[in-house]
C-alpha cells in the first residue's frame, strides 16, 4: 500500500523530468553545432562547388539562425518526425528504435546480473568479514573495478565461444537472440557487480553494527530474518544509487562492449554516426539516451523513497 504523500512525491519527481529534458535538448543541440566540420560540405561531396554546398545548407535548414534551427529540431522531436539519415537516407526512426530496444535489453540483463552477483557476494563478504571468503570477494571486486571491459570481453569470448563453444561471440543481423546476449551482458554484468559488491559489503557491515540490529537480536529474531529483512533493507539504500548510476553508464557507455561483440546497440550507432558526421542521427540518438537516463534516475529516486521512508520528507 502506498500512502498519499508518496504519490505526490512520485508525481513531483516525474514533473521534474520536463525541465531536465528541455535543458538537455538545448545542450545537445548546441554541442552538435559546435562540433568541427560542416555537414553540408561532407554531404555535398569533395567535388562540390560553393554553390552546391550553399544549396545543401538551405536544404538542411542550416542557413537559418540557430534559435530557429533549435525550434525546428524540437518540433521534429515532439512530433516524432525525425527525418532521414544524412548518410544512408533511411528514416532515423527505423535506425534508432531497434538499436534502442537492443541497448535496453542488454542494459537490463546486465544490471540484473550485476545486482544478483554483487548483492550476494557483498552480503557473504560482510557476514564473513576478515575471513577467506571476504578476501576472495574483495579480490574479485578489485579485479572487476580495475579490469578494462574489453579484456574481460575477449577473455569470455576465448573461454565460452572458442574453447567451450557454448555461446556465439558476435551478433549477425540486427536483432540479437538471448544466446547472443549472454556474453555481452555477462561482461557488463560482472564488471558492474564489483562496485555493487563493495557497496553492499561496507553498507551491510555498517548496518549490522547499528543499535536497531541489537534490538532485533534482543527480541530473538532469527539470524536469517535479521540479515535478510531487518538489515538488508537498510543496507540496500546506497546500493540502489550505485546501481542506478551504473544503469546509466550501461545505456550510453557500453560502446566498447558493443564493439567487441558487434552488438547492434545505440551506443555504437551514435559513435558510427559521429564519425560519419551524420548529425541528425547523433542528435536524436543522444536525446533518446538522455531521456532514458533521466527516466531511470527518476525511477531510482522513487525506488529510493520506497525503501527509505526518510527521504519522502523533503
Amino acid at each position: 500500500m502506498i500512502a498519499a504523500p508518496l504519490w505526490s512525491y512520485i508525481i513531483k519527481r516525474f514533473l521534474l523530468l520536463i525541465p531536465t529534458l528541455l535543458g538537455a535538448s538545448v545542450i545537445i543541440f548546441f554541442m552538435i553545432h559546435m562540433l568541427p566540420g560542416d555537414p553540408a560540405q561532407i554531404l555535398a561531396g569533395p567535388e562540390a562547388t560553393l554553390q552546391d554546398i550553399q544549396n545543401m545548407r538551405i536544404r538542411l535548414g542550416l542557413d537559418k539562425p540557430l534559435p530557429v534551427q533549435y525550434f525546428m529540431f524540437m518540433e521534429r522531436l515532439l512530433t516524432w518526425n525525425l527525418g532521414n539519415s544524412l548518410v544512408s537516407g533511411f528514416p532515423i526512426t527505423s535506425l534508432i528504435v531497434p538499436r534502442f530496444i537492443n541497448t535496453l535489453k542488454l542494459a537490463t540483463l546486465s544490471i540484473a546480473i550485476s545486482l544478483a552477483i554483487g548483492i550476494v557476494l557483498g552480503i557473504a563478504a560482510a557476514l564473513k568479514r576478515n575471513t577467506f571468503i571476504d578476501r576472495v570477494v574483495m579480490i574479485f571486486a578489485l579485479l572487476g573495478v580495475s579490469m578494462p571491459v574489453f579484456l574481460l570481453a575477449v577473455l569470455l569470448i576465448v573461454i565460452f565461444s572458442i574453447k567451450l563453444q557454448l555461446f556465439p561471440a558476435t551478433v549477425i543481423g540486427s536483432s540479437p537472440s538471448l544466446r547472443h546476449l549472454v556474453l555481452p551482458s555477462l561482461t557488463l554484468g560482472l564488471i558492474g557487480a564489483a562496485p555493487i559488491a563493495r557497496m553492499t559489503r561496507s553498507s551491510m557491515i555498517e548496518v549490522l553494527s547499528q543499535e536497531y540490529i541489537k534490538t532485533s537480536e534482543a527480541f530473538g529474531f532469527s539470524r536469517k530474518k535479521i540479515i535478510f529483512v531487518h538489515a538488508l533493507r537498510n543496507a540496500l539504500i546506497p546500493v540502489v544509487t550505485v546501481a542506478g548510476l551504473n544503469f546509466g553508464y550501461l545505456l550510453a557507455g557500453a560502446v566498447i562492449t558493443e564493439t567487441v561483440f558487434a552488438y547492434p546497440g545505440l551506443g555504437r550507432l551514435i559513435v558510427d554516426s559521429i564519425f560519419a558526421r551524420d548529425y541528425p542521427v547523433v542528435q536524436f540518438g543522444l536525446m533518446m539516451i538522455v531521456a532514458l537516463f533521466a527516466i531511470v534516475n527518476t525511477a531510482v529516486d522513487v525506488l529510493y523513497a520506497l525503501i527509505n521512508p526518510r527521504v519522502r520528507l523533503e
Binding site: 547499528q210 543499535e211 536497531y212 541489537k214 534490538t215 532485533s216 537480536e217 534482543a218 527480541f219 530473538g220 529474531f221 532469527s222 531487518h230 533493507r233 537498510n234 539504500i237 525503501i307 527509505n308 521512508p309 526518510r310
Partner: peptide, 26 residues
C-alpha cells in the same frame, strides 16, 4: 533455546529509542 526466550520471556528496553528502532519499518 536462548533465541526463543528472548523477546518472549525476557525482553529489553534500550537507552536510545531513536537508534533502537529500525528506520525503514513502520
Amino acid at each position: 533455546e536462548l533465541r526463543r526466550l528472548r523477546g518472549d520471556r525476557i525482553t529489553m528496553i534500550f537507552q536510545e529509542p531513536s537508534a533502537a528502532l529500525n528506520p525503514v519499518f513502520k
